[in-house]
């Protein structure tokens, strides 16, 4: 869908992106992660053609990305902004028309979206008269109203209460289902865990990690298992590295790490012979853990 090839960008003497390459496959949600100042915003601004890259190339559906593709992209910036004194309806139509829709199409689609998010009564109100949550919803509609094929969302949940954050999450999943390619930049790891199919991690203007979320988790797992047993388990876990997580008196939970690499099934078998097992689960690293580990490694390496 989008191939980013060896893209570099500097602001004066500051290097924001160095020799950055990335394949964004069609459909699905790609999480764009990285510490502050890593170069995420620069990458987003280059993809949305707000700024120009210094070198490298970007291919969108087999063509070099240029201004003719702008209508295929939707962008929700982290710093939200609307014309506050415009009426909701007029503003949505204006923004949709800037993306290349005709007046009729823009009106029809804007009305549909406003109905969908229960904001129909506000169509003729000025944006400034809306609550912050409603303004955020309008901003979200403005991002998707022209039905883009690529959606770039920068911290889409900030400013929403949990209820509305849920609404937005459902909308994102719905858009994904309809085939939209989504690039999601966020610091909220729980959103990444929940929504993303792939992950790319930027640190210090370079790509340090990229891949399918599940595969990454597999490759970063440390051969640890989480078990829950009856009793406190004292004396029965000899010969296995173990760490008590919780002891409720009746049951206790341990993280165990066998000394040798072995299949989960054989481990399960050997443990269940010794203890009264309630639960057994392979312990996979969270995205948050992978993030911290990789960033630390790249900072010190």
């Amino acid at each position: 869908m989008i191939s980013i090839k060896n893209v570099s960008k500097s602001y004066g003497d500051t290097r924001a992106l160095k020799d950055f390459s990335l394949e964004i496959p069609e459909g699905g949600i790609m999480g764009l992660l990285g510490p502050n100042g890593a170069g995420k915003s620069t990458l987003i601004r280059i993809l949305t053609q707000i700024i120009e890259k210094d070198s490298g190339e970007i291919i969108y559906k087999g063509q070099t990305l240029d201004h003719s593709h702008i209508g295929r992209f939707g962008y929700l910036p982290e710093e939200r902004g609307l014309y506050k004194k415009m009426k909701v309806g007029e503003e949505l139509i204006y923004l949709a028309r800037l993306k290349g829709l005709s007046s009729g199409e823009a009106t029809e689609k804007a009305i549909n979206w406003v109905k969908k998010l229960d904001l129909k009564d506000w169509w003729n109100h000025k944006v400034i008269d809306l609550s912050k949550g409603m303004q955020q919803k309008i901003q979200f509609i403005a991002t998707v109203v022209h039905e883009p094929s690529v959606l770039i969302l920068d911290e889409p949940f900030s400013g929403f209460d949990p209820l509305n954050a849920g609404v937005v999450r459902d909308l994102i999943l719905e858009l994904k289902k309809s085939g939209v390619t989504i690039l999601l930049s966020t610091h909220r790891m729980e959103s990444v865990e929940e929504l993303c199919d792939r992950i790319v991690l930027i640190n210090k203007s370079k790509k340090v990690l990229e891949g399918d979320k599940q595969q990454l988790k597999d490759s970063y797992k440390e051969n640890k298992f989480r078990i829950r047993i009856k009793g406190n388990g004292i004396g029965v876990l000899e010969g296995i590295d173990h760490q008590l997580v919780e002891d409720s008196g009746l049951e206790s939970e341990y993280l165990i790490k066998p000394r040798t690499e072995q299949l989960a099934s054989s481990l399960l078998k050997s443990i269940s012979e010794k203890v009264d097992l309630v639960a057994f689960k392979e312990e996979l690293p969270s995205v948050d853990q992978i993030f911290k580990q990789v960033v630390n490694q790249s900072n010190h390496g």
């Binding site: 949305t48 053609q49 707000i50 201004h67 702008i70 992209f73 962008y75 910036p77 710093e79 939200r80 902004g81 609307l82 014309y83 506050k84 923004l95 800037l98 993306k99 901003q139 403005a142």
Partner: peptide
């Protein structure tokens, strides 16, 4: 006004 209300970033993702 466009700059302080941050709407400019939305707009220039659509126009030069």
């Amino acid at each position: 006004e466009e700059k302080t209300s941050r709407v400019v970033e939305v707009i220039i993702s659509s126009v030069k």
